[in-house]
Structure formats: C-alpha cells, structure tokens
C-alpha cells in the first residue's frame, strides 16, 4: 500500500484532498457554465453531441484497450461479445437488460469453451 494511505485518518485526508481539488471542480465548473444554457438552444445541442461522442469514445477504448482482467480476453472475443450484445439488444426490441446480459454471456461462454479446449 502507498505510504500516504497507511495512517488511518491521514489516508482519508489524502483521498479527500484528491477528490476536492482534482475531481469535483469539473462538476462545479459545469454547473457555473451551464447557467445560461437552454434545453433547445444550439449551444446545448453541440455540448450534448460532444458528451455523446466522448461516452462512445470511452466504449471503444474499454473494448479495444482494456486494463486488468478484461485484457486477458482476446480482442476478437471482446469484439464478438459487443456485436452479439448489439444484435440481442436489437432483436429484443431494444431491451438494455438482454443486450448487456447477452453480451457478457457470449463473452463468458466463448472464454469457457476456450478454456475447456486448451
């Protein structure tokens, strides 16, 4: 464990400082900047498109370049699970539960079969 966290209360103090100085200010700034934005205005449409593109970028990064345990699953399997999830989502009349659950089930099934073969 990092030395900064070893002392009980000191550890929470360090984490609090990181949260308050490095993380929350972006939310506060968004609150301040959003004051004059209207839900049907052009600026709003642009900001929303930026946020949507950003979330989508995070998806491809998590699938193509994952960290940790997911990296042990081959890229082709991750891709197949994502495409399969989209297909199930579409086939079930846009059910998020079936799409998300189905994608992960495909991933687990292929990995389980692979582990059995090798």
């Amino acid at each position: 464990m990092n030395a900064a966290l070893q002392d009980g209360y000191g550890g929470y103090l360090v984490l609090s400082a990181i949260v308050l100085l490095a993380h929350e200010p972006w939310r506060w700034l968004g609150f301040a900047l959003g004051r004059n934005i209207k839900a049907d205005g052009e600026v709003f449409l642009w900001v929303r498109a930026v946020a949507t593109a950003l979330v989508s970028g995070m998806v491809t990064k998590l699938v193509l370049l994952p960290a940790g345990t997911l990296a042990s699953v081959p890229l082709a399997v991750r891709g197949a699970a994502l495409v399969g999830g989209i297909a199930i989502y579409t086939a079930t009349r846009r059910s998020l539960a079936f799409g998300v659950g189905g994608g992960s089930a495909i991933l687990a099934l292929i990995e389980w079969l692979r582990a059995g073969v090798w």
Binding site: T69, L70, V73, R94, V100
Partner: peptide, 22 residues
C-alpha cells in the same frame, strides 16, 4: 473465477454503448 470477473467488467462498455444508442 477470472471468466466471471471479465464478464462483469465487460458490462460497463456494453451498457454505455447500448444506453447511448437507446
């Protein structure tokens, strides 16, 4: 098990993508 962990972790990108599509 590792496979279960990977399947759980995979739910994050799936959910982000499908709900953005929704």
């Amino acid at each position: 098990p590792l496979i279960l962990q990977a399947a759980l972790l995979f739910m994050t990108p799936s959910y982000f993508l499908l709900s953005t599509m929704a």
